[in-house]
């Protein structure tokens, strides 16, 4: 199982200082027999499908930009950032579910359910943060689950 958390693009995921870690046509074979979750922009567009085509068991990620909001005064204490939590709680659920042994499809659904719960919570009480809903919907709609749905750790 492999988790990425960094920048990405249609054809790659990047690490420290934007160094390309994986790229289509170069080294996606490193993911053969792996279950992958990439919390990065766009890699679900090409890198994900190509990885699965080349033998990855499953690839979860996003096929467009992953967008979230942060609170300006919580940059030094991100765990207290309740705004970012609305997005990251849902995205992190993929990893939590995979580690617990759920299938990639179940992990994907559990993550989507948290996105929905957070969207509904903001919508239901006419929160002043309801402007965030459109961005949660965006991330939820662009999360992808590729490969063998029953694959698990």
């Amino acid at each position: 199982m492999v988790f990425f958390n960094g920048h990405g693009d249609n054809d790659c995921v990047k690490g420290h200082d934007d160094e390309i870690l994986l790229a289509v046509g170069e080294n996606e074979q490193l993911l053969i027999s792996k279950i992958v979750y990439s919390l990065s922009c766009r890699s679900g567009k090409n890198l994900g499908p190509k990885s699965v085509q080349n033998g990855a068991l499953g690839y979860l990620g996003y096929d467009d930009d992953f967008i979230f909001f942060i609170e300006d005064d919580k940059i030094g204490s991100p765990l207290e950032d309740k705004t970012a939590e609305l997005f990251l709680e849902a995205s992190n659920q993929v990893m939590i579910s995979l580690i617990k042994g759920h299938t990639i499809k179940e992990s994907y659904e559990k993550s989507k359910n948290i996105f929905r719960e957070n969207i509904l919570r903001l919508a239901a009480n006419e929160s002043q943060d309801s402007y965030l809903i459109q961005f949660l919907v965006w991330d939820m709609q662009h999360q992808v689950c590729l490969g063998e749905e029953s694959a698990h750790f």
Partner: peptide
């Protein structure tokens, strides 16, 4: 709100 920032990937 003015005290929040959007993060759009890279």
């Amino acid at each position: 709100p003015a005290d929040k920032k959007i993060s759009i990937g890279s």
